[in-house]
Computed example of a mutant assay.
Amino acid sequence: MKNLSNSNRRSFIRNAGIIAGASLIIPKTFANSNDKKEKNNLFLNGQGDGFYTQKIGNKEITVISDGSLYFPDGFFAQEAKESQLKKIASKNGFLTDTTSVQVNALVIKDSNGVTLIDAGTSKGIYDTVGNFLTNFKKAGFNTSEVDRIVLTHLHFDHFGYLFDKEGKAVFPNAEIILSETEYNFWNNGSPNLSNVTADQGTKDFFISSAKEVIKNMKKQFTVKNDGQEVAPGMRMIAAPGHTPGHFAVEMEGFVYLADTFVHPWLHLPHPEWSSKVDVDPISVKASRKRILDKVSHENILVAGAHANFPSFGRIAKNGKGYDWKEIPFEW
């Protein structure tokens, strides 16, 4: 992880509101080995710096890291007391003046082609995210082979590489799929962000960036609703609250949670806490409980857009909250 001094972190908070910080995991065997054969085997097995592949049923699912974002304390837990946040920070070993989350996207390859779920953050928004496209290519994919892009919601860290600066599609052959509710909300003249407690500049950025993507999509997209297939063998599970049309994606043996929880150390033990950018905090909590109860009861493999890379794990019920159970990773 890129190291920033406490003074630098506070300076970034004052000047930017949201801090970006890199957090890409490099396998120890890769970092320490001089054996070319060993290095090559890592990549043949589908693992590497910034990407990780897991075979689930008939699907090959690759998590692509975009980097990490840093936020001031309380950004993800506006109902929490400062003493609670400091206790959690100390317990988990992260700095007490910032809270970080990683940013991930998925590439799913099966007999129906290549499906991308979310598309990272545009280069240049923050200095330590925007690595999605580099890591996508490093994992052996090319932009022309993507058949469809499923957008779980229209936030900047999920659609960043849909279009380049000129508005040209980065993935020229891909159909774009999103929630009808989500499209209608952001396409409205004045999206209602009255329950969002982030500063006005952040609100304006969310609105302008979503509207820019909608403009670039023109009419070349498909809208779906709860329970419908967003791609062959992949079903939408509506999870409104973070945004009105936010959703998770369910397939055989696996659920992609997207932003059902944004910060694993905060929202899992305290599912009653909401983020300052949640459009409807009450709905966030209801959606989170419904989906996390489901995946914990079924003990199903999950991944999250902001879970620690490489993101795969399981959810276990623990009292009124939940625990994150990482699975063994093979590097």
Rank of each mutant, 00 (worst) to 15 (best):
G46V: 04
R290E: 11
Y126L: 09
K320H: 10
D110R: 03
N173P: 03
P72Q: 06
F71G: 01
V146G: 07
I26Q: 06
H153C: 09
K168L: 10
I282D: 08
P264F: 09
S283Q: 15
W186S: 12
E182N: 13
K2T: 13
E326F: 05
I108F: 12
K138H: 15
R290M: 10
F205P: 08
D164F: 11
K87A: 14
F132K: 06
G120F: 10
A20V: 02
F247N: 04
F247A: 05
F312K: 00
I13S: 08
V213T: 13
G227P: 03
S275Q: 04
R9W: 06
N41Y: 12
Y183W: 11
F76G: 01
H297L: 10
Q228Y: 09
D323P: 00
K168E: 11
L154F: 15
N6T: 05
E175H: 02
R235H: 12
S111D: 14
K289S: 06
L292Q: 01
F141E: 08
G253S: 05
E60W: 00
W273L: 11
V129S: 14
G57N: 14
S283A: 15
E82H: 08
N41Q: 15
G50M: 12
Y256I: 01
H267L: 07
Y52L: 00
S23P: 03
W273R: 10
P310M: 10
K59Y: 01
E330R: 15
R9V: 08
S65N: 09
P281M: 11
M234F: 11
S122P: 01
T202P: 00
D259N: 06
R148V: 14
G67H: 05
L292W: 01
T115L: 05
L116Y: 11
G313K: 03
G46C: 04
